[in-house]
């Protein structure tokens, strides 16, 4: 007889669980709090959405003075409105992708849906990073193209500073700030999502293997 057939008999004959739960135990368990991966992804996702939203909201008013100094107020408020509309769209997708999760689905689609939520949040973060990058780029271009404006914004006290030196300092300090920010963000992603999604990615890969070949 095949080795596994033999073990299968052993499996069939295995005794029932000795610590059987009563209906009361099951009732209590069914009403306890879940600690599933999906729940954690939801919590981390909400924190991320909140983090970026608070960055938008916490920027001090004085920061916007630079825009009025540059006469860019109209353009800036247009982009702010657009920005918030896009954020609302992201929030909708985030919520909708959660609603779609159903454990009754087959394993592969279930993992796919869970990973989709992660992708929605990822795009949201990419979007915010792009906005930070593009808006500072635009601001720099406006500033650098006009040394009078640059002097006015960067040196309001009117100290005697060499314009070339000022440009260099401005650029270097921005680059350092961006690098620090990126490194922190990278660590955050590697750590949090690495832990949360390792198992799902591994199982998804395992399920998808061969699928294209057959």
């Amino acid at each position: 007889m095949d080795l596994l057939e033999n073990y299968k008999k052993v499996w069939d004959n295995q005794p029932e669980e000795t610590h059987k739960l009563s209906a009361v135990d099951i009732y209590k368990m069914a009403h306890s709090k879940s600690s599933s991966i999906v729940k954690w992804i939801f919590i981390v996702g909400v924190l991320e959405l909140a983090f970026w939203l608070s960055i938008n909201l916490l920027v001090p008013d004085s920061f916007y003075k630079i825009y009025s100094d540059l006469n860019l107020e109209k353009q800036v408020s247009f982009f702010m409105i657009l920005h918030y509309i896009i954020i609302i769209v992201f929030l909708y997708f985030f919520y909708a992708s959660f609603k779609k999760i159903s454990i009754i689905e087959n394993t592969k689609s279930l993992i796919q849906r869970i990973l989709n939520i992660r992708n929605t949040v990822k795009f949201y973060v990419y979007y915010n990073l792009a906005i930070v990058f593009l808006s500072s780029l635009a601001l720099n271009i406006v500033l650098m193209s006009d040394s009078d404006k640059l002097m006015k914004v960067m040196n309001p006290e009117n100290l005697s500073i060499d314009i070339n030196q000022l440009i260099t300092i401005t650029i270097i300090s921005q680059i350092i700030a961006i690098i620090i920010f990126m490194v922190l963000l990278w660590f955050f992603y590697k750590l949090i999502y690495g832990i949360l999604l390792k198992k799902l990615n591994r199982n998804y890969k395992e399920l998808s293997k061969l699928e294209s070949a057959t």
Binding site: S36, I37, I103, I104, T107, L110, I111, I114, K198, N203
Partner: peptide
Amino acid sequence: RVALNTAISLYRKS
């Protein structure tokens, strides 16, 4: 199905 899905996809510990 539900139990296997929980073990494979939802259970947090590796």
